[in-house]
Amino acid sequence: MTNLVNTNINGDAVGFACEADETLLDALRNRVGLKGVKEGCGTGDCGACSVILDGTLVCSCLVLGMEVEGRTVETVEGLSNGAELHTLQSKFIEHAALQCGICTPGFLMAAKALLKNNPDPSEEEIRYALAGNLCRCTGYDKIVRAVQATAAELREA
């Protein structure tokens, strides 16, 4: 049975129809058109589909679409302020923290969630906070550096 879900996505009131067994990942991609949310595994192991749900980082493949009724969802598409990139986004480009880029939306959301709770993370804290996100291109070195650079800049701001 198809259900109507009313939610807030990236600051906008959004309604979408979805099946009872449909994941938030599928709903975001196929019903709402937010293709920046990526599917790498569908089992919560790769983090490519990471979104922030009511302030908490989740794998959208492990959440049902119907569960976001009345809640707040943040995806990579809402990260920048219009044409002005979020510091994480610009630092990821500057530090070459992406190659193929398929994991990047998930990493950005995970890093955002980390920095909100911990504005001055150690390298180890960054590495553990991002351990739920798989990247096969970079070896993580430049991702960690981009997050460190972002944290430093946001602390000064």
Partner: peptide
């Protein structure tokens, strides 16, 4: 699957 075929995650590696 990536749970049982575990590729390196961020906390597995040092800077390279």
């Amino acid at each position: 699957g990536f749970l049982d075929y575990r590729i390196p995650v961020c906390s597995d590696l040092p800077m390279i």
